[in-house]
Write a protein that binds this DNA or RNA. Structure first.
Length: 550
RNA sequence: GGCCCCGUCGUCUAGAGGCCUAGGACACGGCCCUUUCACGGCCGCGACACGGGUUCGAAUCCCGUCGGGGUCACCA
């Protein structure tokens, strides 16, 4: 067990999907506390929900954490699912000491009681049945399924919270015997978390405020097991900008919404969709929204299924709410920027300080500056942070970030570019918000000359309007460019501007036709640098092809 | 509904009784810059939820109201 003077924090996600912003914020705060105090930060996998936990999700979680740079100090990862014997031994001891007991009500019975309580507008509370010794012996002999509940001492449970203040908790009227082992033999979250934290010597637990009342159960367990009570801090909850609670479900929900629209509008039937996406039709129809439109369906598609549904409907990444850390990575945010932004959701270093490096966050972090009120997650500011950070980051950092972006966007044409080319692309797009933007705005540079598709409205507006004014200028410019012996942005600029002076045309009247010819659209990096990058042969070829196609 | 938490500009927040005619950032509006999309520069708009106290003095303390959120699972 660790030296009690050292702070030990942990992040204990359950592997049911990618890391999302709420989880990342929790991980960050625990990590910052450990790093600030010179303590330890541990990572543990809470996979006691066998039905929902997957190894794939676990790997993704770890990948996301690594990307963020939140490193953990335990060499071996703790998986709760591999510690069942330990939990069972302790639970058996609790039963033997009379501090916990087996309860034989079925799920159905409990559900019925709960519904009855709801109808009567009463709060549901489990009451331990008084079983005779005879009944107990009989149930045991039958091997009847059961759960184990903690015989919770009825009293007041109070604790001091470093965020919310002293004296949190509930009175004796609010406690009930909760389940510590499920009928499938797995411990519940409450039990495993208390045992594991105690064994690992965790001293500080920062978690979301939705756990506030769980703490009561955890304290009762700690008292029953003779464990020390760690310091608790319950973080404000991160909400969507519409005020609803943010969750991984939002992504699934959005897709479900769109699918619902398609079906209602008769675009495709559910059966067709299931077939096209290769999802089991029964599973697919169970997932569909109900007719009432209120979406309370707990079933979610896994990430692979989501991807195929999106593909079928032509949805892009931009159509999804950015909830997952992975989304931010795919869109080209810098991890240090995301951490900076996340740190400000519920915490502030004080004064007007906002922009911080990771090292500065570590230095400035303190528990007493964590706020109490929930925060809405609005990306605008994050985007602005990213823009500024990308503009001021040193080139090697941006190059590394771009390579990382490309690694999670394998379809990008820019994967073919060497570092020198990427550096040029980064420079000519200076002032961009996201790496995705650089990617999309520069992909024409990496296409073959015959792959450029001219956008109809761009051709119309820039080339054909006013009796082919643009196209005529383009023809003359083509001749000038063809005659250039030196192909640098500067030389090209001199030549084009010279033409503008002679013809009394504004630069825009000349630059836009060139832009459309070489890129296919009205948007590109600055035109002279673009042409230099393309090189003379490509530039000439693209302009000629464009003129020929008019 | 019971219990619990929270309540400063649209958003994230600074503010710990006088420093506040409430500061910053993002967003928004205007102007400037400009070969496109952007970037950038300048200016502006904009909040102490409401009502009572306490006090010479309250965004800051107390009470009530209202509003938002959490929780009440064999999910974590």
């Amino acid at each position: 067990m660790a030296d009690s003077s050292v702070v030990v924090t942990r992040f204990a996600p359950s592997p049911t999907g990618y890391l999302h912003v709420g989880g990342a914020r929790t991980a960050l705060f625990n990590w910052l506390l450990a790093r600030h105090t010179g303590g330890r930060f541990l990572l543990r996998i809470e996979d006691t929900d066998v039905a929902r936990s997957t190894q794939q999700a676990c790997d993704q979680l770890i990948d996301d954490l690594r990307w963020l740079g939140l490193g953990w100090d335990n060499a071996e990862l703790v998986y709760q699912s591999r510690r069942i014997e330990i939990y069972n031994r302790i639970i058996d001891e609790l039963i033997a000491r009379g501090l916990a007991y087996k309860a034989y009500e079925t799920k159905e019975v409990l559900d019925r009681l709960w519904h009855a309580a709801q109808r009567a507008k009463r709060q549901y509370r489990y009451v331990r049945p008084r079983l005779t010794d005879e009944q107990i012996r009989q149930f045991q002999a039958e091997g009847r399924p059961h759960v184990v509940r903690l015989a919770m001492p009825v009293k007041e449970y109070r604790f001091d919270d470093v965020v919310l203040g002293a004296n949190q908790g509930v009175g004796p009227g609010e406690v009930q015997d909760f389940i510590i082992r499920k009928s499938d033999g797995m411990p519940t979250y409450h039990f495993a978390v208390v045992v594991d934290d105690a064994e690992a010597g965790v001293t500080h637990i920062l978690r979301g405020q939705e756990h506030l009342l769980n703490t009561v159960n955890h304290i009762a367990l700690q008292e029953a097991l003779g464990y020390a009570r760690p310091t608790y801090g319950h973080l404000p909850i991160i909400m969507n900008s519409d005020g609803s609670k943010m969750s991984k479900r939002d992504r699934d929900k959005k897709i479900r919404e769109r699918v619902g629209q398609w079906i209602r509008s008769g675009k495709k039937t559910a059966e067709q969709m299931a077939q096209e996406t290769g999802i089991d039709p029964q599973r697919f129809s169970a997932w569909l929204p109900d007719k009432t439109g209120n979406d309370s369906n707990p079933l979610q598609l896994d990430l692979g299924e989501q991807a195929s549904v999106m593909k079928m409907m032509g949805m892009g990444r931009g159509d999804l709410p950015e909830i997952l850390i992975h989304d931010f990575r795919e869109n080209g945010y810098l991890p240090e920027v995301l951490l900076n932004f996340l740190s400000l959701l519920g915490w502030s270093p004080g004064g007007d300080r906002e922009r911080m490096s990771v090292a500065e966050m570590v230095e400035l972090f303190s528990l007493d500056r964590i706020g109490k009120s929930n925060a809405k997650f609005a990306r605008d500011k994050l985007l602005a942070f990213n823009t500024e950070a990308c503009a001021s980051a040193p080139m090697p950092r941006m190059l590394a970030a771009f390579r990382d972006y490309l690694s999670v966007n394998p379809d990008s044409l820019l994967n073919n570019a060497d570092d020198a080319a990427l550096e040029k692309v980064l420079k000519m797009n200076h002032g961009f918000h996201l790496l995705r933007e650089v990617d999309e705005k520069s992909r024409f540079l990496f296409m073959r000359d015959d792959q450029i598709e001219l956008q109809g409205d761009a051709v119309e507006k820039v080339l054909k309007k006013n009796e082919n004014q643009g196209a005529n200028a383009l023809r003359e410019i083509l001749a000038i460019l063809s005659g250039l012996s030196s192909w640098t942005a500067h030389e090209i600029e001199l030549a084009v501007k010279g033409y503008c002076d002679r013809t009394q045309l504004g630069l825009g009247k000349v630059a836009q036709p060139i832009r459309v010819a070489v890129s296919g659209s009205t948007v590109s990096p600055p035109i002279f640098e673009t042409l230099e990058f393309l090189g003379k042969p490509s530039t000439i070829a693209r302009i000629e092809k464009c003129l020929a196609n008019l």
